[in-house]
Simulated scan of single mutants.
Amino acid sequence: MFNRIHHIAIICSDYEKSKDFYVNKLGLTVLSEVYREARKSYKLDLAVNGLYQIELFSFENPPARPSRPEAQGLRHLAFEVDDIAVEIARINAVGITTEPIRVDEFTDKRFTFFSDPDGLPLELYEKEVG
């Protein structure tokens, strides 16, 4: 039986730009950072709200991948937030553009999308109260 999602791995095209985005703009916490000489690759472990959840990798010349929300494969990564308006204002203030807020037709929760430096679709989804 599965317990939970352990982590999500993201391969970026520009490590420093993506590290700045996830750490300085989104505010994720760095748990560890290593450079693997044999692979010429960085691995950055990040925490979301104190929980290890994202691995950010760099590799030499990674192939491009379609990253539209309706492309086949993994659709997007969603971050739960307490107040979507507050988080939108926070990330807009550091230069991240978000789509207009939408409402989930099944849960009535508010959400929006934005992209990381490589065009990976990211979502803010308002927390379930209760």
Rank of each mutant, 00 (worst) to 15 (best):
E126K: 11
I96C: 12
H76T: 05
S67E: 08
I88F: 10
A93H: 09
E33N: 00
S115F: 12
C12A: 08
F2H: 15
E60M: 01
S58W: 04
D108N: 15
K43S: 01
T98M: 12
F79K: 01
S58V: 02
K40T: 10
D82C: 14
E60F: 05
K17M: 05
E70V: 08
P100I: 10
E99H: 11
R110D: 13
F57L: 04
A9Q: 04
K109Q: 14
Y125C: 10
R75T: 04
V23M: 00
T112F: 13
K40S: 13
Y125H: 15
L31H: 02
D116A: 08
A9L: 03
C12D: 02
E60A: 05
Y125N: 13
I11K: 13
I10N: 06
T97F: 10
N3F: 09
G130I: 06
N49C: 09
G73D: 12
P117E: 15
A9E: 01
H6M: 08
K25L: 08
L26W: 00
D83I: 13
K127P: 00
K109D: 10
L44R: 02
H6G: 07
E126N: 12
R90A: 09
R4C: 11
Y22T: 01
V103C: 10
N3I: 11
Y42A: 03
L74E: 07
V103F: 10
E87V: 10
D82R: 14
E55K: 04
R65G: 09
S13Q: 12
E123D: 07
G27D: 05
I5A: 06
L56C: 04
E99K: 14
P117Y: 14
E80L: 08
D104P: 14
L46H: 02
